[in-house]
Amino acid sequence: MSSVQFKTKEETKQIMSSRAHVSMRHFLLFAYSLPCFALFSCVGLSLLKDFEKSTRTHCNVFNFLPSISASIGDCEPQRYIWRLCFALDSVPRYAIAFLQLRRLLNRHHIALQEIYPLVQITNSAIHILELTFLLLLTYISSNEIKWIHECSFIGFMICSLVHMLLTVLIDYFWPRTINYRVNDQEKLTRGKRLKWFLVNIMSFFISLYFYFRHNDYCEPNIYSMYCLFEYFVVLTNIAYHAVVMDEWDQNAGQIQFFY
């Protein structure tokens, strides 16, 4: 007759409090590489298997690149790849936004501490709105509810540009305490942010130029130029936010997930 062994309370608690460790750098790499994978895979698949469908426009002129909306809204499996990637990416991006806000609020060398938390919380709220509009863009295509898709795109671009601009302005112009000197790491990260912000806003306005030129004149390949700079807008937005990988201490430790 076999005997049943009962575990002690300490052993049971130890099993129930098992945890998984993920390094901060791997967590950040996952969060910022996933949307890049979604973009390249969806556009690549559209070019390979849905070229005519994804590059077709209202005036039926030749184009060599598909828009992101056409790739993820009209074509399969691109639609599901895009939505799955952003479903997996949404929680890490919200978590990063929260962790970054908490880190910024703990900067003790910042002057004007009476209003600094309010400014940073407002900027973080704008970033949260940016991520939320991006989710709406992801899950509501222009073929489903066009006005929501368009409003989400406008909201995403406004919040993205405002958040980037406010962050750059705080980095460069917010006063520090007299005894604090900007170190080389801070100079490097704020320089990268400024670079990606400038490239992003230039790409956005160039894409608008090609978009309206296409609608006005319906020239061949002009819509493809709009699509190309649309890709640049997305990639430079990711690159801007990924600067946090340089800003955070690479030895910051690990994120613990309990199960």
Rank of each mutant, 00 (worst) to 15 (best):
W174G: 12
D74T: 05
S33T: 12
I170Q: 08
L29I: 14
S90G: 03
S141N: 09
I72K: 00
Y139S: 05
L112N: 15
I140Q: 04
E186F: 07
Q185K: 15
P35E: 04
W147D: 09
L169M: 15
M202Q: 09
V4H: 06
P175S: 07
T189Y: 10
M1V: 13
L112F: 15
E150F: 14
E150G: 04
S160W: 02
C42T: 13
N123C: 11
S67M: 13
A242W: 07
G155V: 12
G73W: 01
R102L: 07
F51A: 00
Y226K: 03
V4N: 09
D246T: 04
A20I: 15
K192Y: 11
E219H: 02
K7Y: 05
F258A: 04
F173S: 11
A242C: 14
M16S: 14
S46P: 04
S142E: 08
V43Q: 12
N237A: 12
D246W: 13
R213N: 09
S67P: 12
I81F: 13
F232D: 01
S46G: 11
V119A: 04
Y209P: 01
F232H: 02
N251E: 11
D50P: 02
P117Q: 08
R193S: 04
K53E: 06
D184G: 12
F232R: 00
S33D: 06
V168Q: 11
H127W: 07
L88Y: 06
K13P: 00
A70F: 06
A242P: 14
T55W: 02
A38D: 00
L228S: 02
R107V: 04
P92R: 09
S203N: 07
T132E: 02
A111S: 15
C85Y: 03
A31V: 12
N60L: 01
S90M: 11
W196R: 00
F153Q: 05
H58K: 06
L47E: 08
G253W: 05
I158H: 07
T8V: 05
E186P: 06
S54C: 08
K146F: 10
P92Q: 10
L112R: 15
T167I: 12
R190S: 13
Y80E: 03
I68N: 03
I154P: 00
V61M: 06
I148Y: 03
Y116V: 03
K192R: 13
S160E: 01
M1D: 11
R19Y: 05
